[in-house]
Design a protein around this nucleic acid. Structure first.
Lengths: 192, 192
DNA sequence: CGCGGGTGAGACATTCATGTCTCATGTGCG
DNA sequence: CGCACATGAGACATGAATGTCTCACCCGCG
């Protein structure tokens, strides 16, 4: 068997597969295994050979999303520099994932009301830590809990992705709109 | 047939039915017609006598949601007084609908990617008009489009409902958190 | 050349929600 | 009382998605 020798290549296939699956499900969250297989250019049988079932596929997609989020958090260097700038960087890095993130959040909200995978808590904590740092440094207001700010960040990012998808927001404005609203709010402020 | 005579009563039944259906689907968006019927204390057959199918039921729920939103917009008197205060009132009035709203948004996002019911555009326009007014009066910043602010309002309201449901935000803080974030953003501001 | 592993196509059983139908019950009203 | 209508219970057919299986095919490699 070539399983062992070609594990890395298999992983690559798997990675691409997950990627296109993410694309398809981002566009149409109710796509069937058939649709996903066709979109990936493989047969349903082969798709099943990679992922035991839809359940397993979604789990794997979740892991993929978590990895990407982790990477985005790393790339944003959330522990460095001005907290507000770090939030800007984080949103910028996260924007390409926005639609996919929306799928995962919806899926989670849909099928596991109340419980949540442990993988998310770590991401939540990393984001939460950023907001906490901002509060500690006096850059962020302290009357909004980091947990809520984290939720709001998710919400605004996915909302912007959907707004872009529906043509209500221009794609090039997406990051700025999200960032500015989250950081500054609607009210006209005296500073800057 | 007593159809004509009892139309008003039937409507009342229908209203209650819609209400409990909304409750059930808010909690578990994937509930079956069976679940809904049981929750309403009626048989699936009777449920089908009121609504031709799930499609029709969801449509009716959408109408219900639109009516409630309209009522919330009326109650918030969005055209009166300070725009920021109007937003506060709007969120306060909308908060009881938040979970239900989340269901409708998700359902929409799920099954009709791209298109949207004409009923929503009117609501969107009413909310959008509020933000426009705030911009005109100099209370709101003008570099965020009213369309985006409207989307963000939806997103934050439903996000807060989910956060409360998952225990990440206290129910009593929900309105304040949403309002404050939307109006003032994360950044600590010099005013107030 | 011949072999083996991976693949595509498709048949098949299963499950689940849905929609429709029938029939027995029950309740109110004449 | 007896009739009409609404309801509840449940059988039934349908359709869709899923998961499993078999078989033929092809491609690379010995």
């Amino acid at each position: 068997m070539s399983h062992v020798r070609y594990d890395c290549l298999m992983s690559l296939d798997r990675e691409e597969l997950l990627s296109t699956a993410a694309d398809v499900l981002t566009r149409r969250p109710t796509s069937s295994m058939d649709d996903i297989a066709k979109a990936a250019g493989i047969s349903r049988a082969t798709l099943h050979r990679h992922f035991a079932g839809r359940e397993a596929l979604v789990r794997a997609l979740e892991q993929l999303g978590l990895r990407h989020l982790d990477a985005a958090l790393d790339a944003a260097r959330t522990q460095e520099g001005d907290a507000a700038d770090a939030v800007r960087r984080l949103i910028t890095e996260t924007e390409p994932l926005a639609g996919f993130l929306g799928f995962l959040v919806t899926e989670n909200q849909l099928f596991e009301p109340g419980e949540q995978h442990p993988g998310w808590t770590r991401i939540d904590e990393r984001i939460s830590a950023l907001f906490q740092r901002g509060q500690r440094e006096g850059a962020f207001r302290i009357d909004l809990s980091p947990a809520w700010l984290t939720e709001a960040l998710y919400a605004l990012i996915t909302a912007s992705a959907w707004a872009v998808q529906d043509g209500r927001v221009a794609a090039r404005d997406s990051v700025r709109m999200t960032t500015e609203l989250l950081l500054g709010g609607v009210r006209r402020s005296s500073e800057e």
